[in-house]
């Protein structure tokens, strides 16, 4: 299936129905997950109502990482086999992943204020997410700074793959540092095991984020392919004239 979709024409034919389908799925899942998490799921014993931000925060964190892995995979395919669609996919995924990471940081900051009365804490996961966010910004800035489209995709792809090695190392470093110097008092490595009444809405929200990513990714890719076609047509007309 992946190789079949490597053809832009076939990809567009696939996305013509898959993009609206993913959009509908995302809207439905958010319509179920958001009210479930924000109103019907139980409040937590220690943190009260503020724990509800978990339904926005945690899926954003999962998919910020997931999108990055997807992006690095696309960069790898684009780098090794020179599939144009893989480059398009990586470029289209980057802003979505950056927004997910930014959403995770913003909600994490709000949550920290509600729980610890501080607008930012340097706990391991929040710090790794900040570094991941910076890596997304670096990828976007690098891609934008190089004019030649194909060269930009490949050079930014090298950076993206190097970042994939870096992110777990950063996570390990910060983990080591918090356990060394702050003690595992406030920032436990694992939260208390989660109750099914909270787990289900969380999983629905995770699916909603995934569907939203799929829909936005395909929309971005469609726009990018059409943009390239328009530019190619304009260049042809210029040559003919």
């Amino acid at each position: 299936m992946i190789t079949a979709l490597a053809n832009p024409h076939r990809f567009l034919a696939f996305a013509r129905w898959a993009m609206p389908a993913a959009t509908v799925a995302a809207v439905l899942l958010f319509a179920i997950g958001l009210p479930w998490g924000l109103f019907y799921a139980p409040a937590e014993r220690l943190q009260g109502e503020s724990v509800r931000i978990i339904y926005i925060h945690v899926p954003a964190a999962w998919w910020a990482l997931g999108v990055y892995v997807f992006m690095a995979g696309a960069c790898f395919v684009g780098f090794v086999w020179r599939h144009a669609i893989a480059d398009v996919a990586a470029k289209a995924a980057a802003p979505i992943g950056a927004v997910y990471a930014g959403l995770c940081l913003a909600t994490g900051s709000l949550w920290a204020e509600a729980t610890w009365e501080r607008w930012w804490v340097w706990d391991a996961r929040l710090t790794s997410m900040l570094i991941l966010f910076l890596t997304y910004l670096g990828y976007l800035a690098l891609h934008a700074a190089i004019e030649d489209e194909e060269r930009a995709a490949r050079i930014a792809g090298v950076f993206c793959m190097a970042g994939l090695i870096n992110v777990p190392i950063v996570h390990f470093s910060v983990d080591w540092w918090t356990t060394q110097h702050q003690g595992a008092s406030v920032f436990r490595a694992d939260g208390p095991s989660i109750d099914p009444s909270m787990l289900w809405p969380l999983l629905v929200m995770a699916l909603a984020y995934a569907a939203a990513f799929a829909a936005l990714l395909m929309a971005n890719m469609q726009a990018e392919i059409h943009r390239r076609r328009v530019e190619a047509a304009a260049a042809r007309r210029l040559r003919a004239a």
Binding site: I131, L132, L134, T135, L137, G138, A141, L142, A145, I146, I155, A156, V158, F159, A162, G163, N166, V167, I169, V170, F172, S173, V174, W176, W177
Partner: peptide, 28 residues
């Protein structure tokens, strides 16, 4: 980061942005 931004005019700020995530572990 330095290699990726080598062809970018006035790439100093870009190199800083690209290199900072990789500086975090040795820094810590």
């Amino acid at each position: 980061g330095a290699a990726a931004a080598a062809s970018v005019k006035r790439g100093g700020v870009l190199i800083a942005l690209l290199a900072l995530p990789f500086f975090a572990p040795p820094f810590i």
